[in-house]
């Protein structure tokens, strides 16, 4: 559980003793996230439509946070694997224990056709960083079926989609992406 690095004390008085603590967590994938993961493995993106306010949430939460009512598989809808970039940033990854990213990369929020909310922190593929813009139409590049693992907590799209590439369609108008900064 504890790993103390002996090399740190080599030069001069001890200032810090790094003590890496590891704690193990077993996160059981909740039933809604599990069903979402199974659909992803099949190459389908699903969401839940709130029976009260009709908003479609992707990934599904199992409830509508606005109406505070539960949603079930009966409320499931299939979403297209195509949509528009609504917001993005280019990151210079900060190095920390466990970080595997080394180079600058772009992450975008994407509003999928058929969904009311965006999916966040999505990779863009083969799109020069200076050509990313809101309204850019993109489509999913799916991972190989055996590599499609859903996030255990039900966040995002897990490893099912490697990233998103431009479709070449005309950009969506501002009226369609404004209001979807998140």
């Amino acid at each position: 559980m504890t790993d103390t690095d002996p090399q740190v004390a080599d030069d001069g008085p001890v200032r810090f003793m790094p003590q890496l603590i590891s704690l193990d967590y077993t996160v059981r994938t909740n039933p809604v996230a599990a069903a979402f993961g199974e659909a992803l493995a099949d190459g389908r993106i699903t969401g839940h439509r709130c029976p009260s306010c009709s908003l479609v949430f992707v990934p599904p939460k199992g409830f509508c946070p606005i109406c505070t009512i539960e949603t079930t598989s009966a409320d499931e809808v299939v979403i297209e694997d195509r949509g528009m970039v609504t917001a993005w940033t280019v990151l210079t990854p900060i190095q920390y224990h466990g970080q595997q990213e080394r180079k600058d990369y772009a992450l975008a929020s994407i509003l999928l056709v058929g969904a009311d909310g965006t999916v966040g922190q999505q990779r863009l593929i083969d799109i020069p960083l200076d050509e990313i813009r809101p309204g850019l139409m993109v489509e999913a590049v799916w991972a190989a079926p055996e590599d499609r693992v859903a996030d255990d907590r039900g966040y995002g799209l897990g490893t099912a989609i490697d990233g998103w590439k431009a479709t070449g369609e005309p950009d969506a108008p501002a009226s369609e992406y404004e209001g979807h900064t998140l």
């Binding site: 059981r28 994938t29 909740n30 039933p31 809604v32 599990a34 939460k61 199992g62 409830f63």
Partner: peptide, 11 residues
Amino acid sequence: DTAESETQMLL
């Protein structure tokens, strides 16, 4: 050993 998220448990 709940499989639900805290939010699902609370709602």
